Simulated scan of single mutants.
Amino acid sequence: MLLFVVSHVVVVFLPGDDPTGDGPWSFRAYVIFNIVLILMSAVGAAVVVATVRPWGRRVPRWMLLTPLWFGSALLVVRGVPGMVENLLMATGNRGGFVGRDDISTAEFWAGIGINTYFFVGAVLLVVTTVSYVRRSRGAGVRTGRSGPDPV
């Protein structure tokens, strides 16, 4: 997630010639979109850390599970089709879903790398979410204490 945050901070502060890619959105929308992505990723990183740190036990379970499930769903929706596109690209349909055969070698490998990045992120976040669900099941009210209840 740190790589994602850093890459989007860079594109906000060093946007290049035409960061909108001739799309229908303005530069302001481009910046707002990237800031939202940065905030979502930073919160996601904090939530993931909270699942394994002692201070995270003081956070209500639902406050961690909500962003974990939401983030898992987003990454699966982005990562699985991306991996399918990688398979298409690797087996001869160089343009992936779009089907453009005239992409450069740099675009080809960038697409493979970005799609793989999101797929691996999806796998890791789903595993983290399922692990947290299992470890926190039956926790009920969080007290902030660790260890067994006193007898």
Rank of each mutant, 00 (worst) to 15 (best):
L14H: 08
A42N: 07
I114G: 01
W62M: 10
M63K: 14
V130A: 14
L74P: 00
R28L: 14
T91A: 03
P148W: 13
F27H: 07
L88W: 03
V77N: 05
L88V: 11
V59M: 11
T20W: 08
E107Y: 00
T143P: 06
G23E: 10
V123K: 01
T91R: 03
P150A: 13
V47D: 00
D149R: 15
F4C: 10
F4W: 10
V6D: 11
L75K: 09
A110R: 01
G96S: 01
A90Q: 09
A73L: 15
L124K: 03
T143H: 07
V47T: 09
S41C: 10
D102N: 11
G96R: 00
G82M: 00
A45F: 14
R58P: 04
G111C: 00
M89N: 04
G16E: 02
V6N: 08
G79T: 04
P150S: 11
Y117S: 07
L64F: 08
R135C: 08
T129L: 11
M89Q: 10
G56D: 03
G79E: 03
A110N: 02
P15N: 11
F118W: 14
L3Y: 08
R134V: 14
Y117N: 06
D17E: 11
A73N: 05
A73S: 13
P54A: 09
G121M: 15
I38H: 08
W25Q: 15
V141C: 02
L75Q: 04
A122N: 08
V5M: 09
S72R: 10
V49H: 04
V120Q: 07
L74A: 07
G95T: 04
F70V: 15
A139M: 10
V80T: 15
L39V: 15
V12T: 05
M83K: 04
M40Y: 12
V120N: 05
P60T: 04
W62A: 14
G121E: 12
T116E: 02
Y132T: 14
T91H: 02
Y30S: 06
P19C: 09
F118D: 08
D18T: 12
V6L: 15
R61V: 14
Y30R: 04
M40V: 15
L75A: 05
G113Y: 00
P54C: 05
G79N: 03
P148H: 11
F13R: 11
F27V: 10
V47R: 01
E85W: 03
G111T: 00
P60C: 10
I38N: 08
Y117M: 13
M63V: 15
D18R: 11
R58L: 12
G140D: 09
A110C: 01
